[in-house]
Simulated assay, not measured.
Amino acid sequence: MDFGLVLLLLGGFLLGGAWSIWRADSDTEGRTGPQVVFAVILLTAALLASVSGILYLV
């Protein structure tokens, strides 16, 4: 399997994790600060992995 495809799969996995954390808010309190920070970190990692995978394939 090509390394670029592995990076794309990793990016999709991290994107799903960021979406899962973003959607897991409390009905009364909303999203907490650490929850938002972790979701942003995962989103950034997902974007970096996806872009790296695309550039590796090109």
Rank of each mutant, 00 (worst) to 15 (best):
G33S: 08
S20R: 08
R23G: 04
R31C: 04
R23A: 13
A49Q: 01
A46Y: 02
T32D: 08
L42N: 02
F38M: 13
L10A: 15
L55D: 10
P34G: 04
A39D: 01
D2F: 05
W22H: 11
S50R: 07
L7E: 07
L14Y: 02
Q35Y: 01
Q35K: 08
E29K: 08
I54V: 14
F13T: 15
V51H: 04
I41W: 04
E29D: 12
L48Y: 06
L7G: 01
Y56I: 10
R23H: 09
F13N: 09
G53P: 06
S50H: 05
L42V: 02
R23V: 05
V36H: 03
L8T: 03
G16S: 11
Y56P: 00
T44F: 08
D2G: 11
D25P: 00
R31H: 05
G53T: 10
F38C: 10
A18N: 03
A39K: 07
G33M: 11
R31D: 01
V37Q: 08
L5I: 12
S50P: 02
A49T: 06
L7P: 01
A45C: 11
L7I: 02
F3P: 03
L5E: 14
V37R: 09
G4V: 07
L14C: 05
S20N: 06
D2V: 10
S50A: 15
A39M: 06
T28W: 05
L48A: 15
F13D: 08
D27N: 10
G30F: 00
